[in-house]
Design a protein around this nucleic acid. Sequence first.
DNA 1: CGCTATAATACTCACTTTGAGCATTTATAG
DNA 2: CTATAAATGCTCAAAGTGAGTATTATAGCG
Lengths: 313, 313
Amino acid sequence: MTTETKEPLHIPAGHGVAAELIAVLVAVISEAPHIMTIRDARALPSGPFESSHRSLQSGLREWVEQQTGHPIGYMEQLYTFADRDRGEADKRTISISYLGLTREESRADARDSEWRDWYDYFPWEDHRKGTPELFEAVVAPRLRQWADEAPGKAARADRWQRAAITFGLDEFAWNEELVLQRYELLYEAGLVTEAERGQKPVLPGRAMLADHRRILATGIARLRAKIKYRPVVFELMPPAFSLLQLQRSVEALAGRLLHKQNFRRLIEQQELVEETGLSSFETGGRPAKLFRFRQAVLAERAAAGTKLPLLRP
Amino acid sequence: MTTETKEPLHIPAGHGVAAELIAVLVAVISEAPHIMTIRDARALPSGPFESSHRSLQSGLREWVEQQTGHPIGYMEQLYTFADRDRGEADKRTISISYLGLTREESRADARDSEWRDWYDYFPWEDHRKGTPELFEAVVAPRLRQWADEAPGKAARADRWQRAAITFGLDEFAWNEELVLQRYELLYEAGLVTEAERGQKPVLPGRAMLADHRRILATGIARLRAKIKYRPVVFELMPPAFSLLQLQRSVEALAGRLLHKQNFRRLIEQQELVEETGLSSFETGGRPAKLFRFRQAVLAERAAAGTKLPLLRP
DNA sequence: CGCTATAATACTCACTTTGAGCATTTATAG
DNA sequence: CTATAAATGCTCAAAGTGAGTATTATAGCG
């Protein structure tokens, strides 16, 4: 939808800026969440926005296909930010990031691109086997130390509260959605590599070029939030799947385990899936019925139900 | 948080693009939702992103203050899009839009800027007095007509279903969050002015320059969604307020009426507010206790509760 | 062939959260 | 003193959730 305007709203600025497109492309591969990477798994697929591109989305699709040989299915915009420090002095770069979901097709196109488990970059985000030992051993003590370094009692308490909330320490419950807040706090505390160039990282977890790891954190956070109120997981599933497979995928993304029976009840009562009539005999137990996603829900359920106490009409 | 990179990820594109910042600045004035406008209320505050700006956000703040004399409190990014059709041939414009919330201070700075009720632009969005007559009279019949114009039976049914869902026709319930979808559908159906330049609009509602009305729709939709799970309304309230005032503000934004007792229960059990000890005797009834927002919740409640059936640890 | 391990699937039950509404209290304006 | 307008309190049923227990269907094995 575009509108021509006879009178431009602004005189275009003299210098202009460079625009860059960046993709967080996600697939679930053997029950683990993966992202597409390039440059020895240290960067996300990206490239400049050019005048030949029809739109931001299509520009990004072109870059990703060119760099990874992999097409994107579902896409949504993540965030746009401007960097002061890169490139020429007077030239700013604007980066527009997108979240993309796809089914892995194992087209081993190489081209310096590869799928990587996203927990390689954020080991502290996987709580499927309970709270990682990392927490007791490193995260909590180091954050405590960082909090104690603050000048002033109030500032120390404040730092510790922030740490406790975002990492689920003390009485606070773990909240899997706070991926970005956690990364930024670790960055601020100097515990991840991008922060201290050349120094040995305090925490395990692969670093990335520029702020790509931060963008990845943004993407993970968005996806973890979104699976709760929109049927996006299905973009990551094969055409037919068992309910346990579906559950494992959600668990992989959320980084936590779910209650099996209640998970089924949720899926069924929301009528998100329908039976294919097929079964899978591959698990060694009772065969699982295979389901497919009910495309109709995309139309029916335009949005989630309200949380406001509405008045009847 | 910025990271220097010795090797830039990409060689900046030769031509570059122009970047524009646009604000949807909201305030609630006498129980009606308002937005800040410029140019005879036909445009949103905006201006080019320049190399002197420290960041996108601060650039936008500068423009808005300059154009309207009004500072912004809370801000969040809305969406970024690229337009082909504006400006020079080889020069693209990237527009980055923000949602801003503020308390109106009635600083009548004029300067060609003014607060306008957002329902001036979207009369069909206000359902506080029930479904507007507009629906029976114009919206429904015109959408029916538009649906019937589609080639092929399937396409006709499809169009009508989309219309029914987004506008709450037939059996579908009204969903106040679908502001953008509704505007885009009306645009597609040729019922709003930006679409048919020079023609008389079929629907009432003030048009805007370029795609500013679409950006406004995006902002309203975001805000209507967000008030349900984040305490953002308080950014729009005075320091002390009664619960009914608070309710009226939410109703103004959502465009629907709420159940009074249940609304209070919600606010109270979530401990969003605390008593100030003061009362308001201005309403002619029993005096209302005045409350203030509990700043602490911003820290405590980092995010909403889960909707996934978690397994206990 | 019957036994065992592994899942899938079914059903239960207490508890919490909502939607809807009635009832009571405390003001102001005549 | 009375009518009116709110504010505030309280109840109750229905729906939604968390946490289990119980039953059914396969494959693999001795």
